[in-house]
Measured scan of single mutants.
Amino acid sequence: MKVIFLKDVKGKGKKGEIKNVADGYANNFLFKQGLAIEATPANLKALE
């Protein structure tokens, strides 16, 4: 799953980066902790 990092995550990505991560990692950790959002077309456009 492609995500946009909202904060730096050690060993995974930095704020503003768009990366592929495992679905479970994104859903169970990144999204719940507010560290990333899904890289949907709307979210990508808002990032610009």
Rank of each mutant, 00 (worst) to 15 (best):
K19Q: 08
G24M: 11
V9D: 00
L44T: 05
A22S: 14
Y25F: 11
F29L: 07
G16Y: 09
L30D: 00
A39G: 04
T40P: 03
K7Q: 12
V3C: 04
K45M: 13
A22Y: 09
K15S: 07
A22W: 10
Q33W: 15
E17Y: 03
L47W: 14
P41N: 08
L30K: 00
L30T: 00
I37E: 03
N28P: 03
K2D: 09
K10V: 12
A36N: 01
A39C: 08
I37D: 01
K45E: 11
V21G: 00
K19A: 11
I18S: 03
I4M: 08
V3T: 00
E48Y: 14
D8W: 10
E38H: 08
E38I: 11
A36D: 00
E38L: 11
L6M: 08
K14H: 10
I18T: 06
G34T: 03
K15C: 11
E17P: 00
K19V: 13
A36L: 02
D8N: 11
K45P: 05
G24A: 14
I18Y: 03
E17K: 03
A26Y: 12
I18C: 09
K2M: 14
K14E: 07
K7T: 12
F31R: 02
D8H: 09
G13H: 10
G11F: 08
V21S: 02
I4N: 02
G24P: 07
I37M: 10
E48M: 14
I37Q: 06
N27P: 05
F5W: 02
A39R: 00
E17R: 02
K12V: 15
G11W: 08
L6I: 11
E48R: 13
Y25E: 08
L47E: 05
I37T: 06
K14R: 13
N43Y: 06
M1D: 02
G16S: 03
I4D: 00
E17A: 05
L30C: 04
M1V: 14
K10W: 14
A42E: 14
L35W: 11
G24I: 12
K15V: 09
L6Y: 02
T40C: 06
L47T: 07
E17V: 04
A36F: 03
L44E: 04
E17L: 02
G16D: 04
A46V: 10
G34N: 09
L6E: 01
I18V: 13
G13P: 01
D8C: 08
E17F: 03
L6W: 00
V9F: 05
L30M: 03
T40R: 03
F5D: 00
E48T: 12
T40I: 05
I4H: 01
P41K: 09
Y25M: 06
K19S: 08
K19M: 12
E17G: 02
K7L: 10
A26G: 05
G16K: 02
K10D: 12
I4Y: 08
F5R: 01
L47Y: 14
F31C: 04
D8Q: 04
A36I: 07
E38V: 08
Q33I: 09
N28E: 14
G34D: 06
A42C: 10
D23A: 15
V9S: 02
K14L: 11
L6A: 02
L30A: 02
K19T: 07
K7E: 10
K15Q: 11
N43H: 07
G34I: 03
Y25I: 08
V3H: 00
G11L: 05
L6N: 00
I37G: 01
K7G: 06
V21Y: 05
M1G: 02
L35G: 01
K14P: 01
A42M: 09
K32C: 10
K12N: 09
L30F: 03
F31W: 03
P41H: 10
K14C: 13
E48I: 14
G34A: 06
E38C: 07
L30E: 02
N28T: 09
G24W: 15
M1S: 05
G24L: 12
D23E: 15
D8V: 04
K19G: 08
L44I: 13
N20H: 14
A36M: 03
N28Y: 12
T40N: 08
V9M: 05
F29P: 02
N27G: 07
F5P: 00
N43D: 04
K10R: 12
A22K: 12
A22R: 12
Y25W: 09
L35Q: 03
G13T: 02
V21C: 08
N20L: 15
A39D: 01
D23M: 15
A42R: 09
L47C: 09
I4F: 07
L44Q: 06
L6F: 04
I37Y: 05
G24V: 13
N27R: 15
N27I: 15
I18L: 06
E48C: 14
L30S: 00
N20D: 13
V9Y: 04
I4K: 03
G16W: 11
F29H: 09
K45W: 10
A42I: 08
N43E: 05
V3D: 00
V9R: 01
E38A: 12
K12L: 15
A36E: 00
F31D: 01
K15P: 05
L47R: 07
G13K: 01
K45N: 09
N27C: 14
G24Y: 14
K32H: 07
T40H: 05
V3L: 04
G24Q: 13
N27S: 12
L47V: 10
E38M: 11
F5M: 05
N20K: 12
A46E: 11
G11V: 01
A42L: 09
E48G: 12
A22M: 10
K45A: 12
E38Y: 06
A46K: 13
N20R: 13
F29N: 06
Y25A: 05
A26S: 03
Y25C: 07
V3E: 01
N43G: 05
L35K: 04
F31T: 05
A42V: 09
K32D: 07
G34F: 09
K32E: 09
E48V: 13
L6H: 00
K7R: 13
L35R: 02
G13M: 04
K7H: 10
V9E: 01
M1F: 08
L6P: 01
F5I: 02
Q33Y: 15
K10A: 14
A26R: 04
G16H: 07
L44R: 06
K14D: 06
I37C: 08
V3Q: 01
T40F: 03
F5T: 01
Y25K: 05
K15D: 02
P41F: 10
A36S: 00
G16Q: 02
T40Q: 04
M1N: 03
L6C: 09
M1H: 03
A22P: 15
K19F: 07
N28I: 08
Y25Q: 04
I37R: 05
K32G: 07
K2P: 08
I4W: 02
K14V: 09
V3R: 00
G13S: 04
L47S: 07
F29D: 06
K14A: 10
K10M: 12
